[in-house]
Amino acid sequence: MSTSTVTNKKLHDGSKWGNPGPMVYDMSKFGMWLFLGTEILLFAMLFTGYAIYYMKMPEDFHNSAKALSTTFGTINTIILIFSSFTVAWAIECIKKNKVKMMNILLVITILCGVAFLVNKYFEYAHEVHIGNLKLANMQWLGGTGRAVAESAVPSMFFFIYFVLTGIHGLHIIIGLGLLTWVLVKGIKGHFHSGWYTPVEIGGLYWHLVDLIWIYLFPLLYLVA
């Protein structure tokens, strides 16, 4: 292959060899979208499982879903939609170099995420209390799993409910970690209108977490 030489083009214009530039922004966004694709596929398999079992036992799904508190679910949905809005606003702010405003909005977003988790904790506690969490091997978690497991066959709906919300909850925690990291960098003054790729990446991830919840909510809470 015959080659000629162009002027010393820096290695992907990266921060290590020069100023963080548009190429890093471009690549990071592309990479993040791909990663979000893998996340969606991960949940897609669970939704497939949901669909298969729903077709097998629609009665079970309708009846079990009645036991869920729509109020809890609705409050959480509103919290997440609001946080999606604040994180989007934060990105707009940094584009206009309003660092302080961005930091405030990120704090609000993080608080929303925490509120979601607290809410979810009470919901789980309630479900364990009324006995929907009838998982067979739960003794070692300190519950009264054994007696419950022997007396009743647990419902497939609740298996799916706990797996879906559990894995989603895990994503919320990861998202919170990511946003906290962005916030710390923001407070230290790393970002400005010329360099805000991590803010945008963190925001993208948070949108995904919210988006998945938007699907989970009707599938789990409104199916009754």
Binding site: L135, P154, M156
Partner: peptide, 12 residues
């Protein structure tokens, strides 16, 4: 956790 996704005894 004894989730019965693939467990025939629990409807999986």
């Amino acid at each position: 956790f004894g989730v019965g996704f693939f467990n025939p005894e629990l409807g999986g």
